[in-house]
Design a protein around this nucleic acid. Structure first.
Lengths: 342, 342
DNA sequence: CTGAAAGCGCTTACAG
DNA sequence: CTGAAAGCGCTTACAG
């Protein structure tokens, strides 16, 4: 029962064992059954392959076919809880048809984005899902120029001739404001996400417009430079320097909301007694915090899954016209919002 | 400014442009500078490569060199907050030297583990980091048999002749119990993680031994079949059926602790007034819950990073003897633990 | 320092 | 249905 060699079995080894040409083995073992090999030979080959513990060398196959059955995914940071479900959605859908995914963290740094794209191209990825897009994004431009199939997820660029699976931000903000206005809040502030991202930008825009529509002060807007708690805290403090009559804040994301809550705690503002707050993308476990954070849930797993499906279609050449899917978010009211204090 | 063709530039294209043999280009562009090419030629080649937008085809390079500069990572589920930091730690350390990582979710199903390993082998990964190990694990055996370099992270197998970066579970449990005993708890229960995992098994063992050492009842132990909140809740209910005099519970993980807390809430037990509870691996945001969960922090990012370093050493042939690193955890006392009620 | 050749393990037109 | 050949884009002994 000793193994003869540590070398992995190749197609030639099984060909030899069966006594056929290695091209016949290749044909017998490849799934597309256009080239018919006689069933008896197929069976012999399969048996031999099994016996030798043969499995195909995907890198040789990739080189020859000039496709890799791999896609890339660009995210800012795996440790941001928004992204794991998106990635899992992507993985589950592409893996079911034999693709694998390579993810890279870019920390929102353009240099790392470039490097990651290069690396992925070097590995001949067939397409890429981009969760890091800024409204004007050199990476997106490069994909277009180099004709790399791509789809954006979560964040959008300003141009609309791209494939994207994003959130109906308008709806997100409107349902949030409806909720707050119903609770009789009038002085409502917004700690917006970075304006160079579509999510930050669109929510801030809708916020102003919808406030105006309701004849409410639309200018209580402060910008957070990143979707982080630190920036949320900074934003809230800045807001306090400008105005302290607000009774509610709409945060650009959950992480921003956490920062706001921290900053409020520092100055003795109670949530929701003094100020109500709504978060932005419903990351896990925040339902268990004190107070449980009201937030706008977005279908992260689903978005990843859809983005993957679209990308696969583009790769297969089945999709010509760009598609922008806007997924419906859902306001989840918990304990961080309450009627406006009088 | 029109591109001549969509074809990616190859080493031959730049060779032609410079007027040298393509092997010279290969030498000039490869980082290992043993084969000296005259600086002037190198410069010309670099210029030409730049001009053509050349970048190496890693899959061709992989095929030829029979190494892929890729490693695999097996995790149960990306959406479990324990794993993203581990993966990030792995990625950051291997990417800095040009490796990429391919992760696969196995959902703790052996079939998926097998499939993932196959896929990774097909892609010629040079080694694999395994975060899914059970105490007896066919995947680990297979890696040994096939001589695939691997290192375990977080979970260990029963055999000790392997590389692993894990937690000092003994210390984790002892510091937890010290804390609880100091708070005058005497009836302490344990909702253990799955006994087929080293973490579940070791913590339960230490729990019993250390309780005995303190002349406390060591048998208030119930097993959760998975590291999930659902299983934690089930465990707690089962415990209540056996005994309801306990004043503290040591949970096998944070997720298990969350389930316990839910189950306690259902029957009107207050944390920490009636029962104190300590979680198991300090996942993010639980410091913000109500009550903030006391937990044993483990250095997840660091563990990933260390595991990657060890794996890289094994791959480089620089490590002969197996290494088991036990990382020090740290009890973080928050508000879910309080003096025992009288 | 540079060139020419061989080969990594597959796939796929082209014949038969 | 099957074989023989060529080639994917690199790397690397072997000469010179």
């Amino acid at each position: 029962m000793k193994k003869k060699s540590r070398r992995k079995a190749t197609i030639r080894d099984v060909a030899e064992l069966v006594g056929v040409h290695h091209s016949t083995v290749s044909r017998a073992l490849s799934r597309n059954k256009q080239s018919k090999i006689s069933p008896s030979v197929v069976r012999k080959i399969e048996r031999a392959a099994e016996k030798l513990g043969y499995f195909p060398n995907l890198v040789a196959s990739s080189l020859k076919q000039n496709r890799s059955f791999a896609i890339g995914v660009l995210i800012p940071d795996l440790m941001n809880p928004v992204f794991p479900p998106i990635i899992r959605g992507i993985q589950d859908t592409v893996e079911s048809i034999g693709y694998t995914v390579i993810t890279a963290n870019t920390d929102d740094e353009e240099r790392k984005e470039q490097e990651a794209l290069r690396m992925m191209q070097g590995r001949s990825i067939e397409g890429v899902i981009i969760a890091t897009a800024r409204r004007e994004d050199p990476i997106v431009e490069e994909c277009i120029k180099r004709e790399i199939p791509f789809v954006l997820v979560n964040r959008m660029v300003d141009r609309v001739d791209v494939n994207a699976v994003i959130v109906d931000e308008d709806f997100a903000v409107r349902s949030t404001l409806d909720h707050l206005i119903n609770l009789k809040h009038r002085r409502i502030a917004h700690i917006a996400g970075p304006p160079h991202t579509s999510t930050g930008f669109e929510r801030a825009n809708t916020f102003k417009n919808y406030m105006r529509l309701h004849n409410l002060e639309p200018d209580l807007v402060v910008v957070a430079d990143k979707f982080t708690a630190e920036e949320g805290a900074r934003g809230l403090k800045k807001l306090l320097g400008i105005d302290n009559s607000f009774t509610a804040v709409v945060a650009g994301s959950d992480l921003i909301a956490l920062g706001c809550i921290d900053a409020m705690a520092e100055v003795g503002l109670m949530v929701p007694e003094n100020v109500s707050i709504v978060g932005g993308n419903d990351i896990p476990f925040l339902s268990r915090m004190n107070p449980a954070l009201s937030s706008v849930a977005i279908p992260k797993y689903e978005m990843g899954s859809q983005a993957a499906k679209v990308l696969l279609e583009v790769i297969a050449g089945e999709r010509e016209t760009p598609l922008v899917m806007r997924m419906q978010p859902r306001l989840i009211v918990r304990n961080s919002t309450a009627p406006a204090p009088r």
